[in-house]
Every structure is written in structure tokens, then in C-alpha cells.
Write a protein that binds this DNA or RNA. Structure first.
Length: 566
RNA sequence: UGGGCAGUCGCCAAGUGGUAAGGCAGCAGGUUUUGGUCCUGCCAUCCGGGGGUUCAAAUCCUCCCUGCCCAGCCA
């Protein structure tokens, strides 16, 4: 990774105001801070999903806009859930999204020694104790949401005994679950997090970075605030469910001789219609084979969306458009689609492909001639240039572009109707050839030689413009048609006896053979196309050049089709 | 009377005492060799509800209602 790739790779944009930026503006104005340092702190226990992009763009975006720094820190304090596969994928995904942490890559596990020292300080000051309660006993004594808890019988051990016991915990003398180190706070607090929380537990597990050096591991609440302080984070931005943890975050930092005291700020996490965002449920999909992997194009993971063809710029754009606030909300999936279309409209090459072919014979066109007609690659981008597409006597058009008895307002092909073939000629349907079963087998048409390029000067009004493919030069391609991610509206509100798996869209993936113009053989993996009048497609990263595979990214907006459906 | 947080258009969201931004969706037109794009217009007399303070409130006070989060030796 060349280090010229900095967070400046993401262009600056005018930022909408939000309450976090307001706080930072005040801190800068008051002189509380001169340089803003944020951090994105994932636990490496799964792949990043669309929900994480909000946090990533928020933290890295703030660093960019305030000329600050955003650290990447892996919150790897639970070795039993974590894996290097995940740290690698997370780094790759963040880079793909266009952000870079430069030299500022950290792991909570880098702080294990320091964290341990601080724990001994807590013990020495009588603010932490070794507790022999079993998990069940501790749970019982914690009290309930409405009733206070009871103090552990081990709460008043001497400092010397606590220190001795804690050192022996570290040395591996005790079994998992037999002892914990707990902060001595307040068992009657209304905030359950303050009821003598566990700060170290015994886990005789191999850690993906520290190996077998440790058999005691610090808990999140204890680790996170200290890690932030050690790194000089100014604003520790996290999601709403940690609001209750803020008093504990502040408590640890107040007790310990840490270099600074970052401010924790909470915001509402991203929820999206049609989308499962729970790591646990996504892991189930992968583990039980409902999808091909974390990067299956139906997955709401960053890797899945990349594979499907969503541009990184679109995900960034979404993150900006949804805003940042404290009210829990669910963003409409339509907004993501809009961001994708908006980006692809500017960048995707226009190309012709027919997904469900209906043969056409141009009766007045010579059998043995193929002519090449110029076509623009993208009308939104003149610099994208032109290409030439072959035209001949035998063509294929989209079956749904022909209607034997057209409805009112139909201006595509119908018996006797004249339409324009994009970039080519006007044609008129002269005859409909039916198969024995009554279905349409092919159409016999005539073309108007004077309309070459799709235009005449005689003022003729031809409103319908169809995409088409020359039969004999058609390239066979494969398309994967995906529906909206893959779930029903609210998989979490499943009925009694059903799991979210019962709500998966079983038609979420349809693979179809299709025919395209020859230029599609030159498609590069990851490159996006607009298959004219159909949808945006992206050349799959795993595709073979001889047989390109295209993932449908999002459908084009089609108001006529919508009306027709309803 | 456990604790914490939140309620502004169908979905997001700005607004921090001076008379309701913007986007998505939707609707109506126009342009168009994609029923795409683009352009124009419409879309909250009202800010969860009731009281109150004020010349003036979505913004302040007060009571009420609704929703979300918390009882892992997960993060």
C-alpha cells in the first residue's frame, strides 16, 4: 500500500451540519482542542456491513474535514470470537471505501501490558477486587432492572490479597470462570453497568495477535476508554447502545493517570429496510450456506456490495445523505439505490444486451451484409467516446418490448407500429409469426434506409426507442439478477416459531443467459454498465473473459413499468 | 417514581426564542435516439399531546403519551 493513498482520496464536500460537528466546532472555538482525532474501532469478528460505513464515513470524514486524523483500532479483547481473516477484510474494505488511516493502525491488544498496569493501580487504590463468584452467582447478585444488586462477599478483601490473587490469575493458576477482577463502584446504581462491572476475566484462549501470552483478557468497557485516552482521541464516537456505558467510560478515566480524557458521543446506528444488519444473523447465512460467502452479492456487507457493483462513492454519498442524529431511524433502501444510480449514471458505459430475446427479421435488408454503426458510450460523459455496433438482417429485441394488443400509451413495438432501433434505423412491424402454441416466434419488419443512425428530417414522430442485438454477432453472456438484498421488510419481527431464515427472499437470485453486443467481451471485472433500458450491471470480479458474468446492480427507474404493475 | 435516550411531511433530516432548509419517495408538466438522465412546479398554517411563560415558542417551563436501549466473565 503506497502511503500516498491518504484520506484525501475522498474529495471534500460541503458538509451538512449535525450535532457531532456542532460539538467539535465548539471545542475548537473554545480552545479545548486544536487537533481533532477520531477513531474507527471494529471488533474483528465479522465482515464490515453497510451499517459500519456510516461510522467509518463519519469518523474518517470528520478527520478529513477538520484536518485531523482518524485511527483504525481493532477492538480485539475477546480472542474466542476474533480472527485475522476479519482484520484483513476490514482493512481491505475501508481502503476500498476510499479511506486511509496512514500509520495510525492500532490494536487494543497492543495495550494489554499498560491495561494490566492500570488494573494493579486500581487494586492498589482499593477500587478493584478479585471476585470468586461464579457467573451464575454474579448474575443473581446483580439485581434486576428495578431492584438493586447485592455486594459480593469478596468485595472487601485486602489490597494485598487482591494483588496477589490478580497476579496469580495472570499467571494462570486459576480455572476459567473461577475468578474475575471487578471494579468497586456501586451495586445499587440504577445503571447496571456501574454495579461492580467485571474488568478482567480468565480465558485460556489463543489470541490471534498475542498468542498464548495472556490467559486473562480485559473487558470492552475497561479497554475502550483507556485505548482512546492512550491514543489521544478527542472525540470517541459510538452508537446509541453505549450511552449507558458512558458513566463507566468516564469513571475509569477519572480513576486512572491517563494522558487525557476523550469525550464519548453517541449517535443512532444505521438501520435499513429490507436489510439484515445483525452480525450474528449474517454469520448464520454464511455458516449455513444460504449465501456463497461474506462477499455474496446479496449480502449487505461492504464486500458483497462491492462484488455486486455498488460504487464506493455511492456508499459514501449515502452516509452523507442520511445524516447523523440521536433518534433511532430506519433509512429506506430506495435511498441507497438512488445513490448508486446517481453515481452509475455518471460513470457506467451504455451498452446493449437482450435478456429475453424475440427474433426479428428485416425483410428488406440484405442477407449477407453487416454494417457497423457508431454509438456513444455515455451521453452523460462525452469524453467516454464512441464504439461501433454491428447491424444486420437478423436481430434480437427484448420480448417485453413487443405487444400484440398494446395498451393505451404503449409506444414500443406492436403490429404495424414504427419504432426506432437505438443508434440504427426506424423499423415497422409488418407481420407477427406465431408458434404452434400461440406464442410469438418472430417478427417480420421493414427498415427505412433513410433513417440511418435513428433519425429522419421529415418530421416523423417516432417515440419508442428499443435496444437490440445483431443475431449473428451476438455475444453470449450470463446475468445474475438480484432482488432487493434478500429479506422481507422486518426479519427481526418474525412471528412466533419462525426465524429470520423463513423470511429470506427465495427468489433473490436468478441466473439468466443473455445476449450482448461484441464490446461486452472486453468488459473488465468490476466495470459497470447500463444495459440500455434494463438496469445497471457490473462485470463480476470473478468472471472469465470468454464468458462474462454480469451482476445486476440496481434497476433503472421505470415509471411506466411501475404504473403497469400497480 | 429502576437507569439512560429519543419523538419535526410516507422515509431520513436541518433548525438552539423571531415566525418550518434540504434529500429520498410521490404527484403534475417540459426536454430527450434509454418510458433513463436533465429541467420546472406541487408536496408540514405546522413541529407526539395538554397547559403555561413571552410582543413572539418546534425552540423556555410543566404535566402527560409513545418508542428505543440496559440485568454477557460479548463488543
Amino acid at each position: 500500500m503506497e502511503d500516498t493513498k491518504t484520506i484525501e482520496t475522498v474529495p471534500e464536500k460541503e458538509q451538512l451540519s449535525n450535532f457531532i460537528r456542532n460539538i467539535i466546532d465548539k471545542d475548537l472555538a473554545s480552545g479545548k482542542h486544536v487537533k481533532i482525532i477520531t477513531r474507527f474501532p471494529p471488533e474483528p469478528n465479522g465482515y464490515l456491513h453497510i451499517g459500519h460505513t456510516k461510522s467509518i464515513c463519519l469518523n474518517f470524514g470528520i478527520a478529513r474535514d477538520y484536518k485531523g486524523i482518524c485511527h483504525l483500532r481493532f477492538d480485539d479483547t475477546n480472542p474466542t470470537a476474533e480472527d485475522v481473516e476479519y482484520v484483513d477484510s476490514i482493512m481491505e474494505d475501508i481502503h476500498w471505501l476510499g479511506w486511509d488511516w496512514g500509520e495510525k493502525l492500532f490494536f487494543a491488544s497492543d495495550y494489554y501490558d499498560k491495561l494490566y498496569e492500570y488494573a494493579e493501580i486500581l487494586i492498589q487504590e482499593g477500587k478493584a477486587f478479585v471476585c470468586d463468584l461464579s457467573p451464575e452467582e454474579m448474575n443473581k447478585m446483580r439485581g434486576t432492572l428495578k431492584e438493586p444488586g447485592q455486594e459480593s462477599p469478596w468485595r472487601n478483601r485486602s489490597i494485598a490479597e487482591n494483588l496477589d490473587l490478580f497476579r496469580r490469575m495472570k499467571a494462570g493458576e486459576f480455572a476459567e470462570g473461577s475468578k474475575t477482577l471487578r471494579a468497586k463502584i456501586d451495586m445499587s446504581s440504577g445503571n447496571i453497568n456501574m454495579r461492580d462491572p467485571v474488568i478482567y476475566r480468565i480465558k485460556k484462549a489463543h489470541h490471534h495477535r498475542t498468542g498464548d501470552k495472556w490467559c486473562i483478557y480485559p473487558m470492552y468497557d475497561y479497554t475502550h476508554c483507556i485505548s482512546d485516552a492512550l491514543e489521544g482521541i478527542t472525540h470517541s464516537i459510538c452508537t446509541l447502545e453505549f450511552e449507558d456505558h458512558r458513566p463507566l467510560y468516564d469513571w475509569f478515566l477519572d480513576q486512572l493517570p491517563v494522558p487525557c480524557h476523550p469525550q464519548q458521543i453517541e449517535f443512532a446506528r444505521l438501520n435499513m429496510t429490507w436489510t439484515v444488519m445483525s452480525k450474528r444473523l449474517l454469520l448464520t447465512l454464511v455458516k449455513e450456506g444460504y449465501v456463497s460467502g461474506w462477499d455474496d452479492p446479496r449480502m449487505p456487507t461492504v464486500a458483497g456490495m462491492r462484488r455486486r457493483g455498488f460504487p464506493a462513492a455511492a456508499l459514501r454519498e449515502l452516509s452523507e445523505r442520511i445524516g447523523v442524529a440521536k433518534a433511532s431511524s430506519t433509512v429506506d433502501f430506495e435511498l441507497l439505490q438512488f445513490c448508486v444510480r446517481e453515481e452509475l449514471n455518471k460513470t457506467a458505459k451504455r451498452v446493449m444486451a437482450v435478456l429475453d430475446p424475440l427474433p426479428i427479421e428485416i425483410e428488406n435488408y440484405p442477407e449477407d451484409i453487416i454494417e457497423y454503426l457508431p454509438a456513444e458510450n455515455n451521453p452523460e460523459d462525452p469524453s467516454s467516446g464512441n464504439r461501433e455496433i454491428p447491424f444486420g438482417k437478423h436481430l434480437l429485441v427484448e420480448r417485453e418490448d413487443f405487444a400484440q394488443s398494446p395498451a393505451k400509451g404503449w409506444f414500443r413495438l406492436a403490429p404495424g407500429a414504427e419504432v426506432r432501433l437505438k443508434h440504427a434505423y426506424y423499423i415497422t412491424c409488418k407481420e407477427v409469426v406465431l408458434a404452434p402454441d400461440g406464442s410469438v416466434e418472430k417478427l417480420i419488419c421493414t427498415y427505412d434506409p433513410a433513417s440511418k443512425g435513428g433519425w429522419t428530417n421529415d418530421g416523423r414522430k417516432v417515440k419508442g426507442t428499443l435496444h437490440w442485438i445483431n443475431r449473428d454477432t451476438a455475444v453470449s453472456i450470463e446475468t445474475r439478477l438480484y432482488s432487493h438484498l434478500f429479506t422481507i421488510e422486518d426479519p427481526m419481527a418474525a412471528e412466533e416459531g419462525k426465524t429470520f431464515l423463513d423470511y429470506l427472499d427465495s427468489n433473490s437470485l436468478v441466473v439468466k443467459q443473455a445476449w450482448g453486443e461484441p464490446s461486452l467481451l472486453e468488459a473488465k471485472p468490476g466495470e459497470s454498465y447500463q444495459f440500455l433500458r434494463m438496469a445497471y450491471f457490473s462485470c463480476d470480479p470473478d468472471t472469465q473473459p470468454e464468458k462474462p458474468v454480469f451482476n445486476r446492480v440496481v434497476p433503472l427507474k421505470d415509471s411506466w413499468g411501475k404504473k403497469a404493475k400497480s
